[in-house]
Simulated assay, not measured.
Amino acid sequence: MVEIRRDPLEGPEILKLLADHMAFAVATTPVEARHALDVEKLRDPSITFWSMWEGDDLLGCGALRELDAEHGEVKSMHTVKRHRGRGLAKKMLGHIIAEARTRGYRHLSLETGSFEAFAPAVALYRSAGFTDRDAFGDYKAGPLTVFLTLEL
């Protein structure tokens, strides 16, 4: 059974997964468009981080950043490579959306890459009802990024 739980960002499995997430960002995204957060930044009090497990096997992760009382941001969605194709990212995204609704957010936004490597992520977000939006927060608009939002 798949379990999603709040994660303190301390275990070796999650630290390795986040290192893999950063390595993917470095390999696929020019530095000026790289917005993946390292472990220390993910520990910010405005961010809630979850990991997904099946027994003792780490499957993936995701996070929700509070931008303000009505607006959240999806961060750090990543599925362990050998577990991709099982619908786990959809499950984590559903968990994040449900939490955003519980918190009373009116909008849930995200930034991701515009490159082919990010096409599955963009397709996932669009299938969940996210639509295009302008840059938000400290992000800058440009051809290397895609900005999406979901009205809750």
Score class of each variant (00 low, 15 high):
Tyr105Arg: 03
His83Gln: 14
Thr48Asp: 15
Arg101Ile: 11
Gly94Tyr: 04
Phe49Val: 14
Phe49Trp: 08
Ala69Gly: 09
Ala98Tyr: 03
Lys81Cys: 02
Leu88Gln: 00
His107Ser: 08
Trp53Cys: 02
Phe49Pro: 02
Ser51Ile: 02
Met92Lys: 00
Leu110Asn: 00
Ser51Met: 06
Leu88Asp: 05
Lys41Ala: 15
Arg43Lys: 14
Arg65Val: 12
Ile47Tyr: 11
Leu88Ala: 05
Ala100Glu: 01
Glu40Met: 12
Pro45Phe: 08
Met52Trp: 03
Arg101Lys: 09
Met52Ala: 12
Lys91Leu: 07
Arg84Lys: 06
Ala98His: 01
Lys81Arg: 11
Leu64Trp: 04
Met92Ser: 03
Ser51Pro: 12
Ile47Val: 12
Ile97Val: 07
Arg43Asp: 11
Gly104Trp: 13
Gly60Cys: 09
Gly94Trp: 07
Asp56Gly: 15
Leu67Asp: 07
His71Gly: 09
Arg84Trp: 11
Ala63His: 01
Thr79Ser: 05
Ser76Met: 06
His83Asn: 15
Leu93Lys: 04
Ile97Trp: 06
Met92Gly: 14
Lys91Ile: 10
Leu59Phe: 01
Arg106Met: 03
Gly104Lys: 04
Leu88Pro: 03
Glu66Tyr: 03
Val80Glu: 14
Leu58Ser: 08
Trp50Lys: 13
Pro45Asp: 07
Lys90His: 15
His95Asp: 08
Gly94Thr: 13
Lys75Asn: 14
Asp44Ser: 14
Met77Leu: 07
Ile47Lys: 05
Val74His: 01
Glu73Ser: 07
Pro45Leu: 07
Asp57Cys: 15
Asp57Thr: 12
Glu40Pro: 14
Gly55Asp: 06
Lys91Ala: 08
Gly94Phe: 11
Gly104Asn: 08
Thr79Ala: 12
Gly104Ser: 06
Asp68Trp: 05
Glu54Lys: 13
Met52Phe: 12
Lys75Thr: 02
Gly104Asp: 14
Ser109Val: 15
Glu70Ser: 10
Ala89Thr: 01
Leu88Lys: 10
His71Pro: 02
Gly104His: 07
Ile96Arg: 00
Lys91Glu: 13
Leu108Val: 13
Lys75Val: 07
Thr79Leu: 03
Lys75Trp: 09
Ala89Lys: 01
Ser51Lys: 10
His71Arg: 12
Ala98Met: 08
Arg103Asp: 00
Thr48Gly: 09
Ala98Leu: 04
Leu58Thr: 05
Glu70Tyr: 11
His71Gln: 06
Ala100Val: 08
Glu70Val: 08
Arg82Asn: 06
Arg103Trp: 05
Arg65Trp: 12
Arg84Ile: 12
Gly87Ile: 01
His107Tyr: 11
Asp68Gly: 15
Gly72Glu: 01
